[in-house]
């Protein structure tokens, strides 16, 4: 009962969005009238949405790659050198994005990255950097928990006694052990990056606006068009959630067999 009502609360807006996106017109009626694919075709033919869509994919991809490259060594080094303290650092890092509201962070970017020393405001690289720092905590937390849970320190000590060098240990033992949590982290990172609006909206230039930033403009237009553009973002998020569920299940299976 409780779950049923709650699921209705979750799905009603989603269903209305989908229904609205296929409706011919929807003004002051309970549900839209007519069936039409024109809103999706409109989005497809809209150059600013096409550019924004590609820009979002590009930024998400770059963010994912950089976050992985930065966070795996960071989480590994911190956990191995600090033990329990690393868990505290992980928690501290994890609260960062909430303790510092996105609008404040964005404001900080406007101040510091419009100076002559760092004149990067409006560049795509800066958008990626902002996405990296907002998503890094999620990856970091996942990895630290996993490194401790898997007792990598013991496995590494064993490998060391068997003659493995640091590089061999890292590539034979550490990376394969962490593959599930890296994947799970990546799903979250890319999902957040694709949906990120609050910081990007403040720091993007006109030509490198991401999909959510452009999406906001659509809200002031026709209902069908707004629905279609939103459903596209919804679809991307759902793919992310599905991938997340699958990796979580694979990880759970792998842990059972250990």
């Amino acid at each position: 009962m409780v779950i049923g009502i709650y699921l209705l609360y979750i799905f009603l807006p989603i269903i209305l969005l989908i229904v609205g996106s296929f409706g011919e017109s929807w003004t002051n009626t309970l549900l839209p009238t007519g069936f039409s694919l024109r809103w999706y075709l409109d989005v497809w033919h809209d150059p600013s949405f096409r550019r924004a869509f590609l820009m979002s994919l590009y930024v998400a991809l770059g963010t994912s790659a950089i976050v992985t490259a930065l966070t795996v060594p960071l989480a590994y080094a911190l956990t191995r050198s600090m033990g329990r303290t690393a868990t505290l650092v992980a928690r501290l890092v994890a609260v960062m994005p909430i303790a510092a509201p996105p609008v404040v962070l964005g404001f900080g970017y406007i101040i510091i990255f419009s100076t002559d020393t760092f004149p990067w405001l409006g560049t795509t690289a800066l958008i990626v950097a902002a996405h990296v720092v907002t998503t890094l905590p999620y990856m970091f937390q996942t990895l630290v928990a996993d490194i401790r849970h898997l007792h990598l320190d013991r496995l590494e000590l064993a490998a060391e006694s068997l003659g493995a060098s640091f590089g061999q240990r890292f590539f034979h033992i550490v990376l394969p052990s962490l593959r599930h949590s890296i994947l799970a982290g990546l799903v979250v990172v890319s999902a957040i990056s694709i949906g990120e609006f609050q910081v990007t909206n403040l720091i993007a230039g006109f030509l490198n606006r991401t999909y959510p930033v452009v999406l906001l403009q659509a809200f002031y237009g026709a209902t069908g068009f707004a629905c279609a553009t939103t459903v596209i973002l919804l679809f991307l998020a759902a793919i992310g959630a599905g991938a997340g569920a699958l990796t979580a299940r694979a990880a759970a299976r792998a842990k059972e067999s250990v």
Binding site: F11, P13, A191, A245
Partner: peptide
Amino acid sequence: FCISLPLTFSGLIVAYGFIL
């Protein structure tokens, strides 16, 4: 799975869903 779906949603999706 259904419950965690909104976690990855952009706030904008929620906003327009609520307008509807």
